[in-house]
């Protein structure tokens, strides 16, 4: 009751919630309904025949069972490497003074400015020369470049926001540099870094262009398979079932990451 009363006090919030719910979740509802339908013909509002017939058919496909673990593995590796090369860079941008630091920091905007399509052939040639086509390493590299912007900018802002007086106080009482970093600096930047990690993971998991160009034929990721199951497929249900399955991990992540994402640190990464 008390919760309902509280809701009543916030009509604007309820309005925003309902409007946003219709806009964001509306399209997703049709996906969910399709996933559990065997037949759905206009003008019926709901599926004309419910059932799980297509679920077993979808998961019987050997390529899906191979692609899912591969995609998870790739996204993890890319996120990890991205963190290993970008976080030190972010620390440098935030804490060390060097000539051209601003130029270098802003230059990472270039990773998002040129239409990737225009770079295809040249990138393919580079990877062919390096013998990286159709290898996991090749896909990792091409996906890594997409992650640089967020993985550098967001943590840079977070490191800049760290309260230096605390660090200095700790150094004054004789704590080692490593200990100061570990116990004082790191906890302050963890929310922003975990947000950046999550954005990187999700973005990498759903990346297709690079995975197609460099991965095929040896490395076939989940979204590349989904493309063929969604666009040229007569049976609408396959795509619906796959989408639904992939949302389960996503929603779990959203649940855990909401706090990190809401932090000021994330948005500060964009220079706000």
């Amino acid at each position: 009751m008390s919760f309902l009363r509280k809701l009543g006090k916030d009509p604007f919030g309820i309005f925003i919630f309902i409007a946003l719910f219709l806009f964001i979740i509306g399209p997703m509802i049709s996906v969910i309904l399709w996933a559990f339908s065997v037949q759905w013909r206009y003008p019926s509002l709901l599926p004309t025949q419910w059932g799980l017939k297509f679920w077993s058919q979808t998961f019987k496909r050997a390529d899906i069972l191979q692609a899912l673990p591969l995609s998870l593995f790739l996204s993890l590796i890319v996120t990890l490497i991205s963190a290993v090369i970008c976080l030190p860079a972010a620390y440098a941008f935030a804490r060390l003074k060097f000539r051209g630091s601003q130029f270098f920091l802003l230059s990472f905007l270039a990773t998002n400015a040129f239409p990737r399509f225009g770079l295809y052939i040249t990138i393919a040639v580079i990877f062919l020369k390096l013998n990286l086509v159709s290898t996991v390493l090749g896909v990792v590299l091409i996906q890594l470049v997409n992650t640089l912007l967020f993985m550098i900018w967001i943590p840079t802002a977070a490191f800049k926001g760290v309260d230096k007086s605390l660090e200095e106080a700790a150094l004054d009482v004789g704590a080692s540099r490593f200990r100061v970093f570990w116990q004082i600096t790191l906890p302050q930047v963890i929310p922003a870094i975990s947000a950046a990690l999550m954005l990187t993971f999700v973005g990498t998991f759903y990346e297709t262009q690079g995975a197609i160009l460099i991965g095929l034929p040896g490395v076939r990721t989940m979204p590349v398979l989904m493309l063929s199951l969604i666009n040229n497929q007569l049976v609408v249900q396959y795509g619906a079932i796959l989408s639904l399955t992939l949302w389960i991990p996503s929603l779990l992540m959203l649940f855990f990451a909401r706090r990190a994402l809401s932090g000021k640190s994330l948005a500060a990464g964009f220079g706000v």
Binding site: P27, V31, V202, T208, I230
Partner: peptide, 10 residues
């Protein structure tokens, strides 16, 4: 959490 291809489809 929703890639473009699924959004288009939905």
């Amino acid at each position: 959490f929703v890639p473009g291809i699924i959004l288009a489809y939905a």
